[in-house]
Design a protein around this nucleic acid. Sequence first.
DNA 1: CCACTTCGTGAGAGCGCTCTCACCGACTCG
DNA 2: CGAGTCGGTGAGAGCGCTCTCACGAAGTGG
Lengths: 343, 343
Amino acid sequence: MAQRRRPTDRPPTLEVVAARAGVSRATASRVLRGAANVSDDAREAVLAAARETAYAPNRAARSLVTRRSDSVAFLVAESEDRLFNDPYFLAMLRGAHTQIAAAGLQLIFVIASTPAEAEQFEHYAAGGHVDGVLLVSLHGDDGLPQTLERMGVPTVINGRPLSGDPSLCYVDSDNVTGARLATELLLDRGAHRIATITGPQDMCAGQDRLAGYRAALRAAGQTPDERLVAAGDFTVAGGLTAMHDLLAACPELDAVFAASDLTAIGAMRAIEQSGRKVPDDIAVVGFDDIREAQVATPALTTVRQSLQDMGRTMARMLLDRIDGRTTERVRILPVETVRRASA
Amino acid sequence: MAQRRRPTDRPPTLEVVAARAGVSRATASRVLRGAANVSDDAREAVLAAARETAYAPNRAARSLVTRRSDSVAFLVAESEDRLFNDPYFLAMLRGAHTQIAAAGLQLIFVIASTPAEAEQFEHYAAGGHVDGVLLVSLHGDDGLPQTLERMGVPTVINGRPLSGDPSLCYVDSDNVTGARLATELLLDRGAHRIATITGPQDMCAGQDRLAGYRAALRAAGQTPDERLVAAGDFTVAGGLTAMHDLLAACPELDAVFAASDLTAIGAMRAIEQSGRKVPDDIAVVGFDDIREAQVATPALTTVRQSLQDMGRTMARMLLDRIDGRTTERVRILPVETVRRASA
DNA sequence: CCACTTCGTGAGAGCGCTCTCACCGACTCG
DNA sequence: CGAGTCGGTGAGAGCGCTCTCACGAAGTGG
C-alpha cells in the first residue's frame, strides 16, 4: 500500500534506494531492470530497499535515456458514426490491452477521425512518443501506416489494407471462408436463390465477404446473379433499404447472406414488413456475431469472429516487432458459423 | 509531412531549432511553450525553424523537469463479464478522449479487473506517471479513489461511490429522476400494478433506480408492494428469471419497470414465454437506451442517458482539478424518456 | 607464479528539456 | 542626469535515470 505523501515531497528516487541498500545507483538500476551480473547479496538488499521505500521508477527519466517510450498507441482511424457501429471494437481494445499490459507497456488510446487529427498524430509519433501503433479501422488506401513505418514506428493494422502494399503488417479475420461457410449453410438448407447484401466496398471485409459468397455459389455449380447482389454499408438502415430493393427486383429469392449482423437485422425487418417470414419464407445469415444477434427475433444465424483474439494477436505481433524479434507479416484468424433460428 | 528518417539519426532537438533560429535554447523553449516576454522577431524565427525541422518536443524530457506526465488514465475497475455488458462504455471513452485530447494530454487506457491489477496500478500512479485518473465502474466501497487522492492524484469517478465519502469527486446520471419518469410513464398509461426488476444493490445506479420507482408510486398515492420487487443484475438472464418469479408471485401485474435495457429484454422474453403480450397485457420500460433497445421486438420504451456526455464531463472536471481551477465536486446529468412500442 | 580472463561494482557523463537567475539596453521619473 | 524599472535574453544547473568505461578481486591456464 502506498504511504500518505504530501504533494510537496517527492517520490523516492533510485539514489535513495541505492543509498538505503548500500550500493551505487548503477547497481540498483541493474537489479531493478533485471540485468545480469549482480551478486545475490546486492540484489536482495536493493529489492528490500525498493519495497520499503515504495519505489516506483520514473518512466520519463528512463525514457529520456533509452529512447523508448514504453507505450504503444491504439489508434482508431474512424469516423464517429462507424465507430459506434462496430460493437466488438471494445473487445479488440480489451484483447490488445491484455497483451500490452502484460509486457509492461502502456496503451495510449487515440481517435483520429479527421485528416487533421491523423496529421497531428503523425507529428506526435514523429517525436518518438510511441514505440509502435495498433491501427484500427483503416480506410481505403490511407497512407498513414506507410508514413509511420517510414518514420521507424512499427505498425500493425487490423484488416488487410486495400492498398495491397506488401510491406505492411496486418491481422485479419478469414472473411472469405466465413462468407463461403455462411452461403454453404444456406445451400445445405436447400435454398435455391440466395441473395447477398454487401459491406462497403472500400473495406477489405466488404470485398472479401462478397468474394466468399460468389465462390460458394460457383462451387455449387450456380452462376452468381447480379440481381441478387445489393450494396449495404454494415448498418441496420442500409440492410433495410437493400432488402426492400432485393425483394422488388427478385421476389422469388429464398435466402440472404448479409455481410454484417446489423445489416441482417435490417434485412429481417424489411422481410417482416413485406409480409414474409424468417426463416420459413426467407432464411437469413449474418456476420460478426454481435450481441444483438442473440437478442434479435428470430435469433440470428451468423459467422463468429473473435475480435478479442484479433486485438491480442495484433498486440503480440507489434511487441515482437518492437523488440526486434522476427514475426510473420500477416495473420489470418479463423471464423466459425453459429446456428440459430434465422437459418 | 514527416521526412524519411533512418533509425540511426535522431529527431531534431530544441538545441537544433534554437541554433537555426539564432536564439538560445531558453528563448526557443519560451516560444514553443507559448510563454510571454518574447519579441515578435524571435517568435517568428523560432516557429519557422521548428516548422522547417519538423520539430516535435520530447515529452519525456519535458515531463522529467515539469513533473507532469501530461497524461491521464482511463481506469476501468470492472470484471470482464460486466465490462462487456456495458454497451455504452465505449461512448464514455469517446467523450473523455475528446476533452483530454483537446487539452493536449494523452489518454492511457487501463483495465484493472482484479485486486492485483488494481494494486499494480496504484503503484504505477504512485510513481507520478499520470496527472489524474478517470475511474469507471467503481464497485461497492472500493478504497481505490481515496488511495489515489491521498497520493495527490486527482480522481473523478463515474457514478456516486457507495462509500458516500464526501471528499470524492464524481459524475452521475440522474437515476432517481429517470426511474421516477419511467414509472410515471407507466402510471399515465393507466397501469395499476407496476412491478420492478432492480439492478445490483451494490451499485448506486441499482439503488437509485429502485428509489425512483418507489418515489413515483408513493407520489401517486400507492403503497409500494414488496411482492412486485424482484432482484436483477442488469443482465438479460437476470431479467428473464426475475420476470418469471414476478409472474408467479403476482399474475395480475400489468406493467414492469426494468432497471436496465438488458433486464427489460429478458423480461419481455419471459412475458412472451408465459403467453402474454407486450405491451397489451404487460407494458415494459427499460433504462439506458442501448442500441438493442431499438432492435428488440417490440421496440423498447426506455430512459436515455448520454454516456458520451458523462465521459466529457468527467474529463472536464478532472482537467480543472489538475490545473488547479476550482470546480464543483459533483455533477448530476439529466436523463429523458424515449417512447417506443413496449409501453 | 605471472599473464590473462571473468565478474561484480562504482564513477561519471549525458539524454532533452525547463526554470531560475543575472544581465543588458531602453525607458521612466524625481 | 542619475537612480530605478522593466521587457527581452542567455548561461547554466539540474530533473532521474541508463550506460559506458575503468577498476579491483577472484579465478584460470601455461
